[in-house]
Each structure stands twice: as C-alpha cells, then as structure tokens.
Design a protein around this nucleic acid. Structure first.
Lengths: 233, 233, 233, 233
DNA sequence: GGATAAGCGAGACGGTACGTCTGGTCTTAGT
DNA sequence: ACTAAGACCAGACGTACCGTCTCGCTTATCC
C-alpha cells in the first residue's frame, strides 16, 4: 500500500516523525478502503466508468475525503494498481529459462485481472501527456518490475549462466531492452491482441529471448514446430 | 482514409453502386475535415481533452454531422488514427536485418507523433472492455502492421534467409509472436518508458530478434560488452 | 409571467418577430413549470433551502435547463415572485379612504403568503449588494406597486378629493413618500414584527396616512380610543 | 456588546457569578474579535459571502471557537448587528418634531452603513421562517428601537405636546403603529428604493407622521409644494 | 417541376460527473 | 476545560459534455 502523506502524496515525504501532525489524524483504514473500492470499481466499470464519486460511495466515504488524499483519478489509480504489482517476485528456480518463464507467467496472470486490464493502458495513455504522471507510474509500477529483470540477471550470473557485468551503462541498457521487450510483448499479446499467454506461447517467447545465449537450438522438448533449423523471421 | 458509409460505418459496406442514395448526398470533404480535426485535436488536447463537440467546432461542422458519420469518439479516433498507419510499408533492402531495422524505425517514428501518442494507448485501453472496438482496432490498425511482418518473412524466404513455411498454423503463430514482440517492445520503449528508439537501441533490439537465426554472434560492431563471448556459450 | 428571452433575460428583447430563432425552439411550458416549482419550493423550504437543483427536480427538468433561462437563483426568484404582484390592482371604491384600505389589505394578503414571505426580504437583501438585481427588483416588483399609488391619486383627483398636480417633480416625490411609507409599514408589521395587518390596524394606519388631508378628525366610527379628542390638540 | 454566556447565548444567562465556571475560562477579547470580524466581513462580502470560516480566519480564531459561542451565522450576526443599534438614543431637543426628525436621521444613518445593509434585511428574511430567530431579532434589535418611540412619546407628553395615555393597550398599539411606520418607511426608502433619506425627505415624512396632531397645516417653511390645502393621496 | 428524402447547422434538452466549497461535527495534541 | 488544527460527512454549487431531439433550410434524385 502506497503511503498517503498528509498533503503532498507525490513528493518525498520527510514526515519528521518528531513533528507530530496537528489536528485530527487521518484514518488509516480509509486509505485501504478507498484503494480497495478503486480496484473493485475498475473491475466493474472500467476506466471510463470510474468516477471519484463512485469510489467514495463504494468506500463509504465522503467525496472530499477521497480528494484530500488523491488529487485526481490518475494518482488514485496509480496507487491502487501499484498495490497489485507489489506482489510480483522473482523466483529462483535454478535455471534462467525457468526463472524467465515463471516471471512471464506471473506478469501475464497479473495482466489478466480485470482491474489491471481496465487501468494499465489507460494509465499509460494518460502518462503520455503528463510527465509527472509518467514519472509516478514509472516509480510505482514500472520500476518495481524492472527490478525483477535485474534480479533474474544477478541470479543467472551467480549460477554462471550469464557473465558478470563489465560496463555499468551497458548493463543498464541491456536491462532496459530486455524489460521493454518482455513487458511490451506480454502486454501486447494480452491487452491488444486479446489472446492468452498460453503455456506454449510463453515457451516460445522465452526461447526467443534466450536465443542470444546459445548458438545451439534450445533443448528439443521446448523447440516445437518453429525450431527446425530456422526459428523465425 | 476509411470510407464513410451512410449509416453503418462499422460493418461491411455493400454500397451497391446501383442503389443510389435518395436525398441529399453527404459532403465528402466533410469526412476529411472531421478526421483532420480529430487528429489535430488529439495532438492539442490529448485523448481526455478530445470531445465530439471540439471536433465539430474544429471541423467547422455541426455536432450532429459528426455523429451521423461516427457513432462515438472511439470509432472516430480509430479511423483518424488508422490513416496514419496506412503509410507504413515494408522496405526490401536486401537483407532481413536491414528490413527489420527499417520497419522498426518507421514504426517508432509513427509512435513519436503527438496524435498517435495521444490516441493509441487510450484506444487500446478502451478496446480492453469493448470487444467490438477491439476487433475494429485490430482490423484497422493492428492487422495492417502484421502484414508487414508477413511480407518481411516472405521476402527473407525468397532471399533464402529463412526456410519456407511448412506448417501453416505454426507460421501464423510465429508471425503473431514476432509481431507482438516488435510492436510491444517499441510501444513500451517509447510510450511507457518514454525513451526514444535510438539508432543504437534499434540495432540491439534487432540483434535480439534475429539471434535465433544463427549460432554465430552478430556482426562485431553491434556486438557490445553485454554478450562478448557468451552468446556462443 | 415574465417572458424568457432566448439568451438575455434581463435586457430589452426586440425579438424581431421576423428573425426566426435558429435551432430547436424552447419549450414555453417549461418556463411556467420552473416558475411554479420555484414558488412551491420557496413556500416549502424558504429562501435558504431553495436550490436550483430542487427547482429543476420539482419542475421535472434538467438543472441545465433552469440555468439556461435564469442565470441564478436571484433572477429566478424575482420573476417567480413578480408573477404574484401582477395581480395587484387598484380598486375604485368611491372614496380615497376605501381605496387605500383596500390596497393595503391586498398588499397585506400578498405578504402573508408563504412564498412571498420567504422571498421578498431575502430578495431585497440581495438587492442591497447588487445594483443590477436591485434595478430588476424595482422594475419587476416595486414599480408595479408604485403604479397603484399613482392611480389611486389620479382617481382621488378625479373625485375632487385631491387637488390636481401642479408641480411634476413634487408629485413624484409625494408618490415616493407615500409608497415607501405604505410598503414599508405593512412589510415591517407583517414580516418583522410578525403581527397580522388586522382590520383595525389597517384602519388606524389609513387614518394616519390620510390625516394631512383634513384639519378635521377622521370620521367618528374609525376614530377609536387612541385619538379621541387629541388629534386636534 | 452582547454578553457571551458559556454555552447558550440564546437563553437567559444566569451567570451566577457565584458558580465559577470549571476549566479554562473563555477569553473575553475573543468575543470582541469575533463580532468585529463579523461586521467587517459583512461589510466586505455581504450576507451571502459571510461564512463562519471567514469570520474565524478574520478573527484569528479556530472555527470551533466561533461555533462554541454562537451556534450559527444567524445568531452571530444578530449580536454583531445589535451592537450597532445600541448607540441609538432619543434626543430631547425641545419639540416633538425636532425629536422625530433627529431619530429618523440617526436611524437612516445606521441603515446606510454597509454592515447594516448587508445584514438587516437578510436577518429579517431568516426570521420569517425561524420564530426563535425572530424573537431574538426582536429582543436584540427591534425592541430597543421601539423604546425610542416610547421615550419620545413620554417626552412629548411631558412637554404637553401629546396628551397622557389613558388606555394602556391603546397606547401600546399606537406605539407599534408609529414604530412600524417609521422603521418600515426608512428601511424601504434606503434599502429597497435605494435613495437617501435626505433632509427634505425626512422633513416631509415627519410632517406626514405628525399631521394627525394638528388640524392645521404644518409651519410654512416645512410645507413645500405639496401642502397647498391638500397634502397627499 | 414538384414531391420526396436526406444532409446540414443551430441550439434545446435530460443527464451525469466534475472538482470546489461550506456547514457542522468529531477527534486529536497541547495549554 | 479550553484552544487550535484539521479530518470527516453531507450536499449544493455552477460548468462541461454527453448523446438525442427538434426545428428551418438546402440540395440532391425521382416521378
């Protein structure tokens, strides 16, 4: 759960624990209720149908109380959705391929939830116009996922499947590339093409991703029709 | 430009040239004016700021006239944006790598236009809830791009860079995978991460895509720190 | 009923009967419904409880429709209340005293209606700050009453009870004085002191008003305890 | 300044000097600050613009503090305005006419102050619906003025200009009539008609009021155009 | 060439949500 | 007990668009 600082939810919050806030303190349970209501409303009504008033009603709270904590629908949804992404974790299953497949599956599962579907692209679309929102999205939603890529990399390096980083900047670019490719492909597959990230699709996609790692074709049982000597266009 | 049938712009349009419409015919220039106004408004105001009323005003046309031709903002924007994608073409530059890089560049250029940025993700987001809209998006925007992948494949097969298709279904799955990967990665890079698809990024991404094609490392100048010696391991 | 011109309800309305209004014409019945709803709401809820939303609901009309015709509560109430004053008429009962008593009674009756009570003073209070509103109140509500004084005067002059006007300006000042005195006294009696304008009170008040007309005491049956023998002292 | 009882400013205030209040005593200066702030805000913003919050801010005091002392805007304004009326006093200038003119002038001067204008009619309007408020207005504002009429009467009786009261009830009715007439006429002149109570107007109005006292026309220099034998309609 | 029919512009209309404001109550900490 | 500060609920505010409708007018084809 994103914290909900007294006045400026977007900036760094020193919250000088010493400086006790004046006046009546905010009800912490209200934050949870609002975020839950937001997710429920998103799943029910979609992005377009989501209104601050609806959220307030569902949370059993006055509209002003919602606005006091989140200045707009965008910020609110960022936080509501970010919660969903907090659960993502990198598995360490003993091989890079297994780890990648696992994370792709988890990401796909997340994108299949109605509240995520309703919110994610709409949020990205808004972020396109509003740099502040984009930054917030990045911090709350995108970067935590990027962390997974980094961690998977580190794990693989520890196992000797990948060489250690030599150039810091190059490593970062590599992570960005891998990340954009994974996230973009899965999102496009599920949200735009509207097809599920099936077992087989995930296997093929992982094969594509890992191809640079070996001059050899992947192990036979994963390589299906497309593998015969040439893999793709 | 999408044609604009008298009543049902979404379904097949017989337009039995024989059955001449009764009453006063529609002004064809109005279609163009509306679509242009839509794109301009998108670039200026973004998806959220775009309203049918604004479009009408900018097109110098009555609101009813817009509604008569497009039943809603969604449909209107699909058509307005689809026009932009009509220009995409597959180059035939003599090598698969060159062709891929070229098409990625063109796609990236398209996604950098303000009207595309404002519209594309928002449209996809709406499509998430409305299957009809999703189908329409697919037909008008996504599939034409998929065609590029198919064509690039065919070209490469003609050159001998790729083997001929053996299994129809497998080939289709292959195309889908490649397409989702390219489209998703570029969209994510530009629209979500907010970074340009630089020369270098495109090169590295293409290398990733084409890796399965060879047990050999890519040409030296593209091979940078991150893979040195490990591609073949 | 105050007319309700298409856009500027406050200014003179040429309404070049020739220049047919563009667009869909307003529904005339809606004007009536709104004004009726306003009076009903005033009587039920008082000035403070009256909201544009309530009026709209009671009139079975959208809030925007109310705002389209009257820009604010003030203007709306002016018109709604003005209707009530349209009924006031000067009787011609054969004597100035009878005429005055009749008009005072009618005015008092008007001020006893709940909708008038709720509205009149509140309206005057607002007029205190807003010169435009004051002018509008004067035109729609106050002046029509002043007309009664003038007409009563004319009638009395015709009967020979009053001498003809000699000085125009003086006559106007005289009318103003009489009018402010009558209106003010009745309003204060009913609305501030909260006591009814009883038969007896009206008689005594009329006596006070007409005293300057004669050096003689008023007719005996009206002269009651409070003046017996002392008027002439 | 109205005293400010610990809890119930509306009811009788025993303030048993013996019964010392528990806890921290109220700051008496705060009462003054709040009432001053109320008058200032009234003059600046008018009745409609006046809010408890505004008053609190201007008085440099917490909203709760205001509410603790005055349960609502109405009560607060009654007290704030009542202060203004405390200054009214009956002069004793040697003749009834002079006394009446003097008191009318003072009353008119009071009604010309912005804070009075903003408050008085609005208060009366509210009183129309709320009997408790009406009573409070009467006690705090209206009755003190009525006292002036009584006192003027007594003075005039002492001088022999008026006969002594014979019937208690009749005298009271007489006072009420005179009072409603004076107060009403001046209020209407200034607040509704929006014209000043000029020297000349006051003279003519006084003449009207005093006419019953003599069968003779008033002294020549006061009797202006309108006096020639007949005074008015 | 007059009937018929649709296109078109203008604006009324009933709705819904907006984001803000105020009122009045409450809940804290500090005096 | 009191003040100051601010959270909180409730609900009105006036505005913006929505998508539909009702007009008067125009512009075509068809009989």
């Amino acid at each position: 759960m994103r914290p909900s600082p007294p006045r400026r939810p977007l900036v760094a919050l020193p919250t000088d624990a010493s400086a006790r806030a004046k006046g009546r303190p905010r009800n912490a349970a209200t934050d949870r209720a609002i975020l839950d209501a937001t997710r429920a409303a998103l799943a029910d009504l979609g992005w377009g149908g989501l209104t601050m008033g609806q959220v307030a009603v569902r949370a059993g709270v006055a509209k002003t109380t919602v606005y006091r904590r989140w200045p707009s629908k965008n910020e609110l949804v960022v936080d509501a959705v970010a919660d969903l992404f907090d659960d993502l974790e990198m598995a360490d299953l003993g091989s890079l391929r297994a780890d990648v497949e696992a994370v792709v599956h988890r990401f796909a599962a997340l994108l299949s939830r109605p509240e995520t579907q309703a919110a994610l692209l709409a949020l990205f679309a808004e972020g396109t116009r509003d740099p502040l929102l984009r930054r917030r999205i990045r911090e709350a939603i995108v970067d935590p996922q990027k962390r997974l890529v980094r961690q998977g990399r580190t794990n693989a390096q520890a196992r000797g499947e990948l060489p250690p980083d030599q150039d810091e900047a190059a490593a970062r670019e590599e992570v960005d590339l891998i990340f954009d490719t994974i996230a973009g492909a899965v999102e496009h597959r599920i949200l735009v093409s509207g097809q599920p990230a099936s077992e087989s699709w995930v296997r093929r996609f992982t094969t594509l991703l890992l191809a640079p790692l070996s001059g050899l074709p992947p192990t036979p049982e994963q390589a299906r029709p497309e593998q015969a000597g040439h893999r793709q266009a």
